[in-house]
Design a protein around this nucleic acid. Structure first.
Lengths: 135, 135
DNA sequence: CAATAACTTAGAACGGTTCTAAGGTTCTTG
DNA sequence: CAAGAACCTTAGAACCGTTCTAAGTTATTG
């Protein structure tokens, strides 16, 4: 019980999700290394390479459940493509428009001053900064 | 020739686009009042209400051409939906997540300091700030 | 006003995402 | 540890916003 790899069973259960074979396999691919940016398709390809059969529908379901559970954050940079980011902390993004790459940068070096107050009856949810660059 | 409404024929021609009935009708809906945020569907509904027949394909074509010509700016806030903004100047957005509304706010009151330098071999294209709020 | 190039159109196609309904897995309870 | 219940996964269909296709139409040019 003193294994040296993170126990995804525990974190999944903590998120209210049964630790099924598929979800554990996906969690491993997503969270075992450093921070990742994946699309449903790219994650599907990766998990299939581990020889654990997971359908594309399950990849979509799981990404959405992980996002709802706060384990992932969705980043929308271009129409028709959703990225999921395993870094759920405060940070912003570089987006290389010419090749679709997404990179994090920490938000603690960035100061945003003078933001107007939200419209009546709304409360702040998040501030996204996307720095778009081209090659 | 000294009419008091903008001459879209001229601006379309300046953008390298023939001033067809459809494009003029769309330009009128888009640019005749103040700044607008539209989707292809919403613009299609509006222009049809003027009793000028325009197909949805033409709305898409025209929005893309106007964007390429710098007459519009595309704003990506949520997966699977593109907004086009008639305000092409420097400004940022409020996005009311709970009902899909988009509002401009001027960028000159906002200061963003400490942005990291773009990755090697890339040059800055634009910095988007999206302030997400909920009701 | 004819010839040409550009444009519009309906409908099909497309790509990413969600839904459906059937079967399989995990959990709970005794 | 068996059995039922709840939950999950799956293939394939459906869906939705967008783009493509091929044919007909319109603006421009000479």
């Amino acid at each position: 019980m003193t294994g040296n790899s993170p126990d995804f069973t525990v974190s999944l259960r903590a998120a209210g999700l049964r630790p099924t074979r598929q979800r554990v396999a996906l969690a491993r691919v997503l969270f075992e290394g450093g921070h990742r940016h994946v699309t449903a398709e790219s994650l599907h390809a990766e998990v299939k390479a581990t020889r654990m059969p997971v359908s594309l529908a399950t990849v979509y379901n799981t990404l959405n459940q992980f996002r709802e559970a706060g384990l992932l954050r969705e980043v929308v940079v271009a129409p028709g493509r959703s990225y999921f980011d395993t870094n759920t902390g405060h940070h912003h993004h570089f987006f290389v428009e010419t090749d679709g790459e997404l990179h994090d940068f920490p938000s603690d070096e960035v100061t945003i001053a003078g933001l107007p107050t939200p419209p009546e009856g709304t409360k702040l949810s998040r501030v996204d900064v996307i720095v778009r660059v081209r090659r």
